[in-house]
Nucleic acid binder design. Sequence first.
DNA 1: CCGGACGGTGAGAGCGCTCCCAACTCGACG
DNA 2: CGTCGAGTTGGGAGCGCTCTCACCGTCCGG
Lengths: 348, 348
Amino acid sequence: MTETAARPTLEAVAARAGVSRATVSRVVNGGDGVRETLVERVRQAVEELGYVPNQAARSLVTKRHDAIAVVIAEPETRVFADPFFAMQLRGISKELTSHDSQLVLLLTEGRDDHARVGRYLAGGHVDGALVFSLHLDDPLPGLIQRAGVPTVFGGRPCWSEGTRASGPTVYVDCDNRGGAREAVRHLVGLGRTRIAHITGALDQTSAVDRLDGFRDVMVDVDPRLIVESDFTPGGGERAMRELLDRCPDVDAVFAANDLTAYGALKVLREEGLRVPEDVAVIGFDDMLPVAEQTDPPLTTVRQDIEEMGRLMARLLLRGLDRRGVRDGIGGAPSSVILPTTLVHRASA
Amino acid sequence: MTETAARPTLEAVAARAGVSRATVSRVVNGGDGVRETLVERVRQAVEELGYVPNQAARSLVTKRHDAIAVVIAEPETRVFADPFFAMQLRGISKELTSHDSQLVLLLTEGRDDHARVGRYLAGGHVDGALVFSLHLDDPLPGLIQRAGVPTVFGGRPCWSEGTRASGPTVYVDCDNRGGAREAVRHLVGLGRTRIAHITGALDQTSAVDRLDGFRDVMVDVDPRLIVESDFTPGGGERAMRELLDRCPDVDAVFAANDLTAYGALKVLREEGLRVPEDVAVIGFDDMLPVAEQTDPPLTTVRQDIEEMGRLMARLLLRGLDRRGVRDGIGGAPSSVILPTTLVHRASA
DNA sequence: CCGGACGGTGAGAGCGCTCCCAACTCGACG
DNA sequence: CGTCGAGTTGGGAGCGCTCTCACCGTCCGG
């Protein structure tokens, strides 16, 4: 941990290359309008001195930061621990990297933290934000939009009344409803008639949308076939038990996600029911370490999580670039719903 | 996405409070040596104007950034997807937050990316780095230490020959070896005699250390009882099959992590072997969604992952602060090995 | 052969902040 | 009653960079 040697400045490079600061700056930023010989000379000086631009000085004048914030509102430990965010982050990171932007990660812990995040974003330390807000009553989306920071949401956000910001909301989500429909139709196609749904946590739009998709197909479904749960394996177990109790004749289950399906599978096995012969099971997410490893391997609805992350970043960056170009018409980017695909494995 | 109103500057606050820039600066940075009445007046002006300091301007002069980088070297998708990093990030984030520092996340993709990360760190954009380097031959640790950025590693790093940097290396790890010993001793205590070990990916120090711990207890172990694997469920399955094939009399398995144990459990069940009656199984990590949900619930060695993250951050920040105080003797912080605990569930 | 256009370059003015130092106010002390 | 020092406050010089302009040479058309 020794003191790092003083970093060379533009000035130093200029001196070495025998040109002015302005010229070095031009070269460093693309080199347009500089004679080729000079460009070369400057490049070499940069190389020799190991010059790296000082981002702080640059931001100070450009008001750009080449950094975006990723906000993950996460009261619940277990949700954060699933691979979901990791994959999204990966996608986001890839996109940002290719755009030379940095990723500032903001994790919130409980309500008080919202203020901190709001302050940070309003403080103009980043060019934009990517926000994952999971719950219906989350004040974060409102806070953020009020902060005036360009934002793209991960998953369809939900507005508490009155929090609704002006201007369009941009978000990226997968086709939860359509994916659910496809899963349920597949079960119907298998000849199943007593098809149940174990829901996710219904304070999240993804859970609501999947339930809606289920209902789209099972129009007059026996209400006892719908059991509310919470996206966890334990919740899946409890729900499956209740389901078996209420409707012993159930012959198919569409679980709101793979973890839930995993729990359901466990109960089914314990009860001596064969999957898929007695009860077919479909999950959602195609979370690989889970879906491929269940017993039997899980048929599930795949969403490309990494791609969602990447897309969020792309949308945000595009919006940012456009802003630079004097907010031309052609307009703000709009939300994107990614398609899902049904992955056939053994459970249905 | 409207243009944000011009942010108020120190100057503006000063004007409003009827004092000088310097005074406002003092108040904003703690307010020492300023008369109480003035402090109050400035505070109010700050409030009214919604002033937030411009970090870029501040860094420019202080050379501090109040930001640290978290570098996750991750060629393998599946490893990143496990909850491990999420938990660590959480711990890190908590610690940084309470220290008013930001977390810049750097994910690498393949070899070329190392250069990018090296450049970024060397560029002095952050005050320090927290680095997770998983593999033995990873050039990243060397690169980073050469960049002269204060760094704390997650997990005992491993140096390719010649890459070894000068100066002490600080890292945080759990007591992989001791934890493994405890697990194996527990199996011995259960009266098991044919105790096997399914290793993790042996290009990672954690896997090597756990193997060493196993060997510490099982001094003259039948070499056929050690099967090399890779920390994945699939790998666990394969290893377990091979093990059963080689030594049908195996009566206990210490798996290098929970995922591996999960795979092993699956094979055992398929083969009609009872756990723990016929074969006792112990995992490592206590990855909750996995360990609690296996069938039967997994006895495993717990490491407090979030705490590791928090500790890494704390160590780094402490080192940074000390640097500020003229690098006094009393010295660089040193590595920490966190204890593990054996969690008794049903599988052993 | 001269004026103007034009590509290329450098000088200089800040961006918003911190921090050094000078200045100023008092109360205390000789 | 003068002086000194502690306690406060303000002025000003940059931190390293970008960006606007003025400037300079060159090339071309008239």
